[in-house]
């Protein structure tokens, strides 16, 4: 019974705590925690100089810059258009709205590899969109811009689905109240709607950003994967693995894991702040 007192577990009329809690912790440890810790243990064993040499080589630094930079740009695009889409879905009515709303989630449901080849087909120099962009001097496929396009596709639902409930909860009444007090549409947006949804928008941005940094499947087809130019960090890990350089792969993976845990903590803090503000 020692572990129970340790956990502060109180006797309950409902059965099954030992069994379900035990299985949960067992599965979590075996599938998630122990394998993840392998990355850090392996990294700890490789020595500082070797770690820096691999994890912060020029090629790796450029790959981080692309992964984080493109993810940030894509998340920003999604913050703007995601807010617009969420607003339109919550506040307006038009034929086919349910279908549109369902399609917003397509990036969650569509396998990333399928998204990757579809986007490449669209933005290649003979693709539906690429054929118009190429003459204008805009090269999307097989360039860093392609990475942004893929990550924009992947990230949209994170912003829409985070902002939507907050906007619905805010109600149309406050926008009407602002209008009745003489505010223009722009003032009503900047002073009433935006401040109210800002925390949710920031959370959506962070979720899209975190997903974008680690994204692999949708990016590698459209990026062209030119070293020093359009090579993302996860691809670098794969390449190290293909050369059986486990240490190199692990060093880059550890760097990325630390970064994504930092983002995860930021998201949790944001959500706690938002909840506190809404319920205070």
């Amino acid at each position: 019974m020692a572990t129970r007192t340790l956990l502060g577990y109180r006797r309950s009329i409902l059965p099954g705590f030992g069994l379900t809690f035990g299985f949960t912790v067992f599965a979590l440890s075996l599938i998630v925690l122990i394998p993840l810790s392998a990355v850090f243990i392996k990294t700890a064993g490789m020595g500082w100089d070797q770690f820096v040499a691999v994890a912060f080589s020029r090629r790796a630094l450029l790959a981080y810059r692309l992964s984080f930079g493109a993810a940030a740009i894509a998340a920003l695009i999604n913050a703007v258009f995601g807010l617009l889409v969420a607003w339109v879905l919550v506040r307006t009515d038009f034929p086919g709205k349910r279908i549109v709303s369902a399609l917003v989630d397509l990036p969650f449901a569509l396998p990333t590899a399928v998204a990757g080849i579809a986007l490449t087909a669209l933005y290649a120099s003979n693709g539906w969109i690429g054929q118009y962009l190429e003459p204008a001097g805009i090269k999307v496929a097989f360039s860093p811009l392609g990475v942004v396009v893929a990550l924009t596709f992947i990230g949209l639902p994170f912003v829409v689905r985070t902002v939507e409930p907050v906007l619905a909860d805010l109600g149309a009444e406050v926008e009407e109240a602002a209008a009745s007090l003489g505010a223009t549409r722009w003032q009503s947006f900047t002073r009433v709607v935006f401040p109210a949804v800002a925390p949710a928008l920031a959370t959506g941005f962070a979720l899209a950003f975190a997903r974008g940094v680690g994204e692999y499947g949708s990016v590698i087809f459209i990026a062209g994967n030119l070293p020093f130019r359009s090579e993302i960090a996860p691809l670098l890990i794969v390449q190290q693995l293909e050369q059986y350089n486990y240490a190199g792969a692990t060093a880059i993976a550890a760097t990325m894991l630390v970064a994504s845990f930092a983002v995860l903590m930021a998201i949790n803090a944001l959500q706690a702040w938002d909840r506190g503000r809404r319920e205070a």
Partner: peptide
Amino acid sequence: RERGIGFVFQHYALFRHMSVADNIAFGLTV
């Protein structure tokens, strides 16, 4: 906004991210 009315909403529709004073001042500051 062009009618010069005051409207009190059933559920008040106060701006929850603004203080009471900022809520009252809103119509003048916009």
